[in-house]
């Protein structure tokens, strides 16, 4: 069992857990993920490692409530435990001194990009970060990201905070101004797809962190396969980072929808069970 040492409700539907997992904490690097399972009947789901503390032996994850597992996770409290926490999985993000790097984060992925921006900064890069959310109340970790960036741009879809619009707009302006050596874009697939489309004409290498459906996370099932540069890759072992210009985005988006019906059924059942047990 892995205990939740700290729970923070960052924004209404995004939560942070600091979890006791000394072995994972020892090895964690920016860009890697864990696979978790709440209990015996739970699904295995991947979550990115947002931070770690090797001395304390803890790993931080940040997750957004989307379906049954993430809603159930959100019900847990500090002091509770989850059954399984496996990692660190996947390859760490490739970090070296590139020059000027733009880090683009959409939604909860601010937490994913934070350790990457930090590592880039520590390696001597100029870091420009762009973080986007739907509206002001979903903005978090602005200070943290500012602390690891030379420049930070915030956007909201509805204009309630920062610049109104999508992350791709400031991204395009930065590219037009020139001097960008690399872009790292992490967030919902559709946002990564359009970030990659934005950078492509400029020929700037763009790294994305893919989020297909997974089961084991160790290369054993092939559920997470994607097509990159025409070749089939397993995201859990070959990634999760890939060259965004080579990813077959439509295939990824289609495969993510494999279980929409089952996810809906599972979520409705869970809501019903919850209503019954509280009513």
């Amino acid at each position: 069992m892995y205990q939740i040492l700290l729970k923070e409700d960052i924004v209404p539907n995004i939560h942070l857990f600091k979890i006791a997992a000394p072995n994972v904490a020892q090895k964690a690097q920016a860009g890697q993920f864990v696979v978790i399972r709440i209990d015996e009947k739970g699904e295995r789901i991947p979550l990115t490692i947002a931070d770690w503390d090797r001395e304390e032996g803890s790993v931080t994850v940040v997750f957004m409530e989307v379906g049954t597992t993430t809603h159930r996770l959100a019900q847990l409290r500090q002091g509770d435990s989850i059954a399984n926490f496996i990692g660190p999985l996947g390859k760490p993000t490739h970090i070296e001194k590139f020059g000027t790097v733009v880090c683009v984060a959409g939604g909860f992925a601010v937490a994913t990009i934070y350790p990457i921006a930090r590592a880039l900064k520590e390696t001597g890069n100029q870091v420009v970060s762009i973080m986007g959310a739907r509206s002001k109340d979903l903005i978090f970790w602005e200070d943290r990201l500012r602390g690891t960036s030379d420049q930070l741009i915030v956007t909201t879809d509805d204009g309630s905070y920062g610049r109104k619009g999508l992350v791709t707009e400031p991204l395009k302006e930065l590219l037009e101004a020139g001097g960008i050596d690399r872009v790292i874009a992490i967030g919902p697939s559709i946002m990564m797809k359009f970030s990659a489309k934005t950078t492509e004409p400029f020929g700037v290498k763009t790294i994305v962190s893919l989020n297909p459906i997974m089961v084991d996370g160790t290369g054993m099932c092939g559920c997470c396969r994607v097509s990159v540069g025409g070749a089939t890759k397993f995201v859990c072992v070959d990634g999760p980072d890939f060259d965004g210009h080579e990813v077959d985005w439509d295939l990824l988006l289609a495969r993510q929808r494999t279980y929409l019906d089952e996810e809906k059924l599972s979520f409705e059942q869970w809501q019903r069970r919850r209503a019954e047990s509280s009513g």
Binding site: K41, R44, M220, G222, C223, L265, S266
Partner: peptide, 21 residues
Amino acid sequence: NEFLTRVNLMKAYRFPEYDTP
């Protein structure tokens, strides 16, 4: 491997009681 893992290890044959589809 994926099909059998979902069914045997994750008990998808008892979905939605077990949450893996």
